[in-house]
Design a protein around this nucleic acid. Sequence first.
DNA 1: GGAATAGTGTCTCTTAGACACTATGTA
DNA 2: TACATAGTGTCTAAGAGACACTATTCC
Lengths: 225, 225
Amino acid sequence: MNEGRSSLIVAVDVVLFAVQDKQLYTLLVERGRPPFQGMWAFPGGMVEPEEPLSAAACRELREETGIQSVPYLAQLGAFGDPQRDPRGRVISVVYWGVIPTRCPVRGADDAASAQWWPVNALPELAFDHRTILECARRRLRREVQQDLRLLFHLLTPPFVLRELQEVFEVIIGRPTDKRNFRRFVLQQQWLEEVGIREPQGPGRPARQYRPRPEALLPSPGDRCV
Amino acid sequence: MNEGRSSLIVAVDVVLFAVQDKQLYTLLVERGRPPFQGMWAFPGGMVEPEEPLSAAACRELREETGIQSVPYLAQLGAFGDPQRDPRGRVISVVYWGVIPTRCPVRGADDAASAQWWPVNALPELAFDHRTILECARRRLRREVQQDLRLLFHLLTPPFVLRELQEVFEVIIGRPTDKRNFRRFVLQQQWLEEVGIREPQGPGRPARQYRPRPEALLPSPGDRCV
DNA sequence: GGAATAGTGTCTCTTAGACACTATGTA
DNA sequence: TACATAGTGTCTAAGAGACACTATTCC
């Protein structure tokens, strides 16, 4: 092992997803200075010397968007192309996560402003963030297909089954049969019924559910999965 | 984004797996100097300023073990616990890979010696490498279960189906039915028959196979999957 | 009563897994 | 011919997916 010191810069970035109105959104901040001034990027920044990587991710997210906590956050990987940042060599450790609905965000800190964008109509992204987005989106899709419980972190309980299914369909990108979906979810015993939703117009009111606490996928955070 | 500079040290480590004699092996180098002198660690070292991460992984592997190329290498993730290296803050980007059989290795460079170890009888590992190993092992198991073609990188063709199955069983850790395994592999049309193995003792000689080129999983290397 | 949404059951096809005997070579 | 290894087919159970109608509420 080479024990010499070579100092590269380590950053973290956070790709956060939310679903609303049958669209997948991701959270971006507008860059207030060069390089890529005026373009948009994922919230992120440098890692402090004594700070765990996931803590840095949460901190940058908080500082740049005001979001205080994320129910599910996992590491996506390290992006280290030598050319990815024109200022020099920056390794970015990227985290991805989900959050229920587009929660309010504010611009702050050195980010000019933070905003939710539909992933199908994004502005031009800085650095290699387009690549990172595609990677994170694949990962989100895969994880949801492998374990539907991730959906529970994308909704605020109580919710109704149609809402759950809509979120699912937005993420995997194709429609699903209602009966098959409901049968599958209900027979896992992940949900408990919690009354009937107040009627909100024509149509039969739907049952509301809440995920059982033991059905909530724990956030890996820094843990390796 | 915080544009200030904080310089952390970025290293790469490589967890390489091979199977032989119905055992899973991993490649370690003995540490020739503190910290953890005399203990064993995965080959690895510092990333050069202009070097892609996967290139650094390959270079360190070559320098410390003499291995020139690895048929399948993918990123496992970044390990960045502030306490993981007593010398200071080191972020390690870990790669994992597989290679057919235990190829010869040499100690070299500043690694005292390189050696294949059975994962079920490892020496004490330096740093957080025990954690990393468990993570890599889970990943190997998952990938093999999801796509059997990864096995083709763990054998030197031509091979016979029993050998393929043995490698599979070692990795997933339990026996499998011979007929089911053969049926599955053959009906994927991944293999082409390439003659009969010379008899090597009692018993009927087995057919030899070679994976079709298009059935070889491409090594992700630096690409995000 | 008409419109809108919620809720329900069956059948089929595919896949995964359990399971035992025959074939062909060596000594 | 005894022994060792290679090679083969069927049945069952579970899961995934296609598919259409009834129930309840509002206006």
